[in-house]
Design a protein around this nucleic acid. Structure first.
Length: 312
DNA sequence: AATAGAGTCAACCGCCGTTCT
DNA sequence: CAGAACGGCGGTTGACTCTAT
């Protein structure tokens, strides 16, 4: 049996909101709140609108903390980064952009950013920030090298044969850490990346260490690299999709001129969308192989984990 | 100046997960 | 426990604006 409609569509006004309606809704919500029931709100407020429509209008336009106006380059970068990791999880992406709504971000992506990327203007490199990469005080987590050229690297995972367990950890780990993704192997130990691990546009060195099932990244100067527990030393097979990687004799992974590029599937998905009219945001899968490690998003509430973390 | 096409974005639609009864 | 009600989400639409011809 189908669900009853949320409102009587014949008796509700549709289309653009008038200033009067905006004022009525704003005034009511500011005075009474939503009461936890959007469906009943329009009647109480004296609006001939569907509750869903009221909710949308409030969330996307009338809320006092909404940021109107163009997106900054910093916001561009965040959106691109998160899209490359999560696909079209607009609400999740928007949650990292104070004052922006999922609708805003979605529209902005569809109308501008995607085209910008396709035009080859968005070959991003990971840059250093002084916090977790988000929030009002953050600096760019990504920067655009002035001379960068579009590049479509094949997204690959490299296999960390750590002890007896096998975990597939993607090359996007650094960025995942910035949005609070952590990893656990065999459900026991966390492989949680340092949330303040940062990269500069032309990074001289990155070290990643494995200590007792923890990946500990060197944040600034690589001094945290441990000879005995370095990522590369522990790895039986490492394939590097990015230019600029070096594997030292000691096995430490070092990079210079590190340039973060979008995974193949990510860019390809956009191309496919352009060609076939459908989105193929499957890069999430390419970034982390959930089947080989117990990987759960961290820093996200459980409902988000339920909704997105186990989608496949 | 008129028109067509492209771009933008607010709003709607329908599905899904959660909560309530 | 089942079904209804609701909130939230991503995809899509269509009205409006801008730009090129």
């Amino acid at each position: 049996m189908g669900r009853a409609p949320c409102c009587d569509k014949a008796n509700v006004k549709r289309g653009p909101w008038s200033p009067e309606e905006d004022a009525t809704l704003k005034s009511y919500v500011e005075t009474h709140g939503t009461g936890g029931n959007w469906i009943a709100l329009p009647q109480k407020a004296g609006l001939k609108r569907c509750g869903k429509s009221c909710r949308l209008r409030w969330l996307n336009y009338l809320r006092p903390d909404i940021k109107h106006g163009g997106f900054t380059e910093e916001e561009d970068n965040i959106i691109c980064t998160l899209y490359s990791q999560m696909g079209s999880r607009w609400s999740l992406i928007a949650s990292q952009l104070p004052g922006r709504t999922d609708n805003d971000v979605k529209n902005y992506w569809n109308t501008k950013l995607k085209k910008k990327l396709l035009a080859g203007k968005s070959s991003f490199s990971i840059s250093k920030s002084n916090n977790n990469g988000f929030g009002p005080s953050n600096t760019n987590i990504l920067t655009q090298p002035a001379s960068s050229q579009p590049c479509l690297p094949k997204a690959e995972t490299y296999n960390l044969d750590y002890s007896t367990s096998q975990s597939h950890i993607s090359t996007a780990l650094p960025v995942l850490s910035d949005v609070g993704y952590g990893f656990s192997v065999n459900g026991t130990q966390n492989l949680l990346l340092d949330p303040v691990m940062h990269f500069s546009g032309h990074l001289s060195q990155l070290g990643a260490t494995l200590e007792n099932s923890h990946i500990v990244t060197s944040s600034q100067d690589g001094s945290g690299i441990s000879d005995s527990t370095s990522l590369a030393t522990e790895s039986k097979s490492v394939s590097m999709p990015y230019n600029g990687y070096h594997v030292e004799d000691t096995g430490n992974i070092l990079m210079d001129q590190f340039s973060y590029e979008f995974p193949y599937e990510f860019v390809n998905g956009i191309w496919s969308q352009e060609k076939a009219g459908e989105v193929v945001p499957s890069c999430y899968d390419s970034l982390i192989d959930f089947s080989h490690a117990d990987i759960k998003p961290q820093g996200l509430n459980q409902s988000v984990v339920n909704r997105y973390g186990e989608r496949n």
